[in-house]
């Protein structure tokens, strides 16, 4: 298509948007609302993933060694642990460290209760283990338990399972919502274009008589959908970005637990912008194309 034709088609599309003012505005806000909901769920999903990752990173396995094991054996066990697949890093926590920790944190002010422990330390040496993939915790624990002189392996599998399943659920729900909203938005824009085609049937008829190709007739309508879809994307993006920025700031200032944090607004902005523009434009173009296919029979 020549530049001149494209420019003309764009001019026509803009005119159509203005001519169908109320309908265009209604479509624009409905699609923006769909994108807004989509954005909220996408941010929710992204943050659940982000938080899951943070929880995963904080989830460690504690491996306790029999009290009879010698220091050499403890070091050897360390090497054996490292050789287990899925083990990312380990750190030794000796029984002396444990006692010191108990004195400092757990029995602070009641050190008397730990009297005599220095001479006969009842604690065991242990390794703190960080895994590559937390979803393989059960398998890794089984492997670790096979190591000789290992007393017990403690992990937070329940927490991990809950977080992983929650994250999976949110992902699935978000995808389902995306599909539903996409469908709703396509139906809306398709309806708008259907009305436009109906309102402009005389013009289309004249175009056909004059010798316009179907493509020439369709393009302004498709561009009309594109303009509405794109404008909806811009509006929805501004609202979502503003809302999310306010939320992140609020949580940062007032609800900072220091345990988990949300993804920064600046970090998600490009992704949301691309998602909205792609979805908005796609909705506009597909909706118009469907409508044109069904109603352009003059």
């Amino acid at each position: 298509m020549s530049l001149s034709k494209l420019k003309y088609s764009f001019k026509e599309a803009k005119k159509n948007v203005i001519r169908n003012g109320l309908m265009s505005v209604a479509s624009l806000f409905t699609i923006a609302s769909c994108l807004l909901i989509l954005g909220v769920f996408t941010l929710l999903s992204l943050n659940v993933n982000h938080i899951t990752q943070q929880i995963k990173d904080q989830c460690e396995i504690q491996l306790y060694i029999n009290t009879e094991a010698t220091d050499e054996r403890v070091a050897q066990i360390g090497e054996e642990i490292k050789s287990v697949e899925n083990v990312k890093e380990i750190s030794l926590f000796t029984k002396e460290d444990t006692l010191a920790y108990a004195k400092a944190d757990m029995f602070d002010g009641n050190e008397g209760m730990l009297e005599g422990f220095d001479e006969d330390n009842p604690f065991s040496d242990s390794y703190k283990i960080v895994l590559h993939d937390i979803e393989l915790t059960t398998e890794t624990v089984t492997e670790l338990e096979k190591i000789v002189d290992v007393d017990k392996v403690v992990n937070k599998q329940d927490v991990v399972n809950t977080v992983v399943s929650l994250s999976g659920g949110v992902k699935k729900f978000t995808i389902a919502m995306m599909l539903v909203l996409l469908l709703v938005a396509i139906v809306i824009i398709s309806n708008t274009v259907k009305l436009t085609v109906f309102n402009r049937r005389k013009e289309i008829n004249i175009m056909k008589y004059i010798g316009a190709t179907d493509r020439f007739i369709r393009i302004p309508f498709v561009l009309e959908g594109l303009i509405i879809g794109f404008s909806s994307a811009v509006i929805a993006f501004l609202l979502v970005f503003w809302g999310y920025f306010a939320l992140v700031s609020y949580i940062g200032e007032k609800l900072n637990f220091g345990v988990v944090e949300l993804i920064g607004a600046g970090q998600v902005a490009p992704m949301i912008a691309v998602l909205f523009v792609v979805f908005g434009s796609l909705i506009g173009v597909v909706g118009s194309a469907i409508s044109m296919r069904k109603h352009l029979h003059v």
């Binding site: 001519r19 005389k202 008589y209 004059i210």
Partner: peptide
């Protein structure tokens, strides 16, 4: 159809376009 011009009893002009634009429209189409 581009080899033919057509004139109807009811004129079939586009009401929201000027005289110039109505003629221009036919040329844009081709």
């Amino acid at each position: 159809r581009r080899k033919m011009g057509v004139v109807f009893q009811d004129f079939r002009l586009l009401e929201d376009r000027t005289v110039y634009e109505n003629v221009e429209f036919a040329m844009r189409v081709v």
